[in-house]
Each structure stands twice: as structure tokens, then as C-alpha cells.
Write a protein that binds this DNA or RNA. Structure first.
Length: 398
DNA sequence: AAAACGTGGGC
DNA sequence: TGCCCAAGTTT
């Protein structure tokens, strides 16, 4: 095994060229292509400009009122791939429901998922739950202050570990989230997608980080990306880094960062069963803990095969998943939904249980529930639309 | 190491 | 409508 030169090292000549050009623009005698060679007076000015901008223009966010590593941890996890305005109400509810590590560690996973319901990427909630138990068992119930120990917790990667430790303890760890990638990409006018220059962007984030005010610096960098250096229509006139920004000087700020190529998403057609028994109850199942929507409840169903009718699909899927025979009745609704990596159309039909005792053949658990009870269970968004349709039909005057 | 993993906003 | 993307991590 001799091919050990880290894979990314030779794959980002454009990143090195961009940094070299950035440095050369400042100091024409300097041809270095590494962030660590940035002239120190530039680093000082960038830090100072950003920190004083943040002191006046920084956002007032709920978790910034806290130095409790638990509360900050929760916010960092919720903010992964999720916008601030979406997170805030979830954050407040979560801290009421689970105010500390112990309460989270002791909670039932179903309650954890119910509190997370609607936020998406449910592995985050499962990981939070597992990490709380790890903290209880291995760290005496206190969030670890060592980077490697934080990084080892489920759901915490390099950016989240740095974000938590810098925000909670003012430790000098760099971060590289979507905001920071965009800001730094524009600063040096990086002419390739950020994913192809991650080592260089990490180096840059590390070099720029204020060693004396890492907490404020990291928060400021994210605020800059979120409020001025936005994806569309960046507000360069208000930007504290405008004099130092290579993208601005080249007038390419609106073209950067370069986008990552993505293919079209597959579209799946699904037959879904709302199965009724004679007690006005509906059959729901809990998905296995791993993978898509793991641990959430759903209405049984599955993919419609080529040449298959929806009715035949539903009968077949229900037989395979639950070992029962149903009679497929009239259609309840249709739901279109887009996940991150495919799209679905849910064709939802009322069904009647005819034969066999339901068994959890391809799921973790099954239950008969009334319409009143159903809201106690965590469901994915697409299924909440089905429940809404059921409740609407139920409340119709007879 | 590329693909999996949710949902909502904005245009 | 459809597409891109947002405080990324895991396998």
C-alpha cells in the first residue's frame, strides 16, 4: 500500500491557483499557493473587519444567549442542512421537552422522534439520542470539551464539533459549513466547485480564525454568509470584506460558488393502503430504525411495478409486508412529495381488512389505531398529508 | 468515496 | 412546476 498521498491533494490545482492569485494580488512578490502563506497584515485586517462588523450587525439568535454546550449542540445539529427560520421553533420546543443531556438520554426514542417530526434527516434525532446516552455513560453526563471526544459522538462531524466547542467554550477550532464555503470561495474567487477544494478551504478557515476570539469569529463568518454574502444577490456594498474580496474585484461574485452538477431525480409511484378494521381503527407500521425515515410510522404500501394496477400493487404489498388480505376500496387522495434523492407519488386507497392476522414481516411494529390516537405517533410529512385527508373526510357533515 | 439522507424557501 | 440549495454526517 504505497498510494498514500491523501486523495484530494492532487485534485485541486484550481484551489491552489486561486489562493496563489489572491496572495499575488496583495503582494506581487509572493507566489505561494497555500493559505498559511497569506501575509499576516491581511489576515489581521480580515479578522478585525469581520469582528467589528459582527459587533454591530451580528444576528440575535436564541442559542447565542446560551453557553450551555447541550443547548448549543442541539442548535448545531438542527442547523445541519436546515435554515435558521425553520430551526427556531423546533429549538425552543426541544429545550422545553428535553432541557438537558439526562432528560434526552432517558427519553423514549419515539418521543424524541415525535419532537423532531417535520424537521427531516431523522438520523439526526436518532444520533442525538444515542450521543446523549454516550455522554451519560462515558462523560459523566457533561458534554465533552475535548475535540476528539466531541467528534466521536454520533452525528457530530468536523464542522459541528468546531462549531460547538468554539461557541460554548471559545476554543479555536475552524468550521466549514455552507456559509463559510460560500464566503471563502468568493474571497479567493475559487474557480471550481467547493467540494473539489475542501482541504484548501479548511486551511483558509484555519488560517483566518481569530486565535483570541474564535467564538465570535466563527459566528461572524456564518452571519456574513447568511446575511450579506448570500447565494443570490450578495450585498457587497455592506460587506466588511469587500476591499479584500477577489470575486468582487473580478466582478464574479454572482457566479460563485460554482455549482455541483446533479442529475435528474428518479420518480417512484407508490400504492398506499389505509386499512380499516371493524372497530374503526387503522393499521399503521413503524419503519425499521435505519435508513430512510427510520423509526417513523407510516401507512403500509410499496412501489407499483411495471404494468401493475394500483389496486394489485396494494394487495401484493400488504400481503408481503403484513401477511394479510385486504379489499381495496375507493381512492382517498394523491400526494406528491420530493425527497432529497428521489420523488414519489403516493396513490392512497381506503382498504378493508379481510383475512389473516397482521404481522410485522418487513417493519419493526404494527398497530391498530383510531384517528384520535394517530397524532401521538411520529410520521413523515408525506404521511401527515394523508392523515389530514382522513381527518377532513371524518369531519365532513353526514 | 460516492451516495444516502427530509423538508421548506425562493425564483 | 421544477430545480437548486440550506449551520453536514454517515456508510
Amino acid at each position: 500500500m504505497s498510494r498514500r498521498s491523501s486523495p484530494q491533494r492532487n485534485r485541486s490545482p484550481r484551489a491552489k491557483a486561486a489562493i496563489a492569485a489572491y496572495i499575488a494580488d496583495i503582494d506581487s512578490t509572493n507566489s505561494a499557493g497555500s493559505a498559511s502563506n497569506l501575509p499576516s497584515f491581511v489576515v489581521q485586517q480580515l479578522r478585525q473587519a469581520l469582528l467589528s462588523w459582527y459587533a454591530h450587525q451580528g444576528r440575535d439568535l436564541p442559542w447565542r444567549h446560551s453557553r450551555d454546550p447541550y443547548a448549543i449542540w442541539i442548535s448545531e445539529i438542527m442547523l445541519q442542512q436546515t435554515q435558521v427560520t425553520t430551526v427556531i421553533p423546533y429549538y425552543r420546543r426541544w429545550l422545553q421537552r428535553f432541557p438537558n443531556v439526562d432528560s434526552l438520554a432517558a427519553a423514549d426514542l419515539q418521543d424524541v422522534l415525535k419532537t423532531w417530526e417535520g424537521l427531516g434527516y431523522y438520523a439526526r434525532a436518532r444520533n442525538l439520542h444515542r450521543a446523549a446516552q454516550t455522554i451519560g455513560q462515558q462523560h459523566g453526563g457533561r458534554f465533552p470539551q475535548q475535540f476528539d471526544q466531541a467528534l466521536a459522538l454520533s452525528g457530530i462531524g468536523r464542522t459541528t464539533a468546531g462549531g460547538i466547542l468554539s461557541a460554548a467554550f471559545n476554543q479555536p477550532w475552524p468550521i466549514l459549513d455552507g456559509n463559510v464555503k460560500r464566503v471563502l470561495t468568493r474571497l479567493i474567487a475559487l474557480d471550481c466547485p467547493p467540494s473539489q477544494a475542501l482541504p484548501e478551504l479548511w486551511d483558509l478557515s484555519t488560517t483566518l480564525l481569530s486565535p483570541t476570539q474564535p467564538r465570535d469569529f466563527n459566528q461572524a463568518l456564518m452571519d456574513l454568509g447568511a446575511t450579506l454574502c448570500t447565494r443570490r444577490h450578495p450585498n457587497c456594498q455592506q460587506c466588511p470584506w469587500q476591499p479584500y474580496c477577489r470575486a468582487y474585484n473580478l466582478n464574479v461574485q454572482s457566479e460563485l460558488p460554482m455549482s455541483e452538477a446533479r442529475g435528474p431525480l428518479p420518480h417512484k409511484h407508490i400504492g398506499v393502503a389505509v386499512i380499516w378494521n371493524d372497530q374503526q381503527q387503522i393499521l399503521i407500521d413503524r419503519r425499521r430504525p435505519q435508513g430512510l425515515l427510520g423509526g417513523l410510522w407510516e401507512f403500509p404500501g410499496g412501489k407499483i411495478e411495471a404494468g401493475e394496477t394500483v389496486e394489485a400493487c396494494i394487495q401484493r404489498e400488504v400481503q408481503e409486508e403484513l401477511g394479510i388480505h385486504v379489499e381495496v376500496g375507493k381512492q382517498l387522495t394523491t400526494v406528491d412529495h420530493a425527497y432529497s434523492h428521489f420523488k414519489v407519488t403516493l396513490n392512497v386507497y381506503h382498504c378493508r381488512h379481510r383475512q389473516g392476522e397482521p404481522q410485522p414481516l418487513e417493519c419493526d411494529e404494527i398497530r391498530w389505531v383510531t384517528l384520535e390516537e394517530i397524532s401521538q405517533f411520529p410520521f413523515p410529512k408525506a404521511n401527515l398529508q394523508i392523515i389530514a385527508a382522513l381527518q377532513q373526510a371524518h369531519h365532513l357533515p353526514t
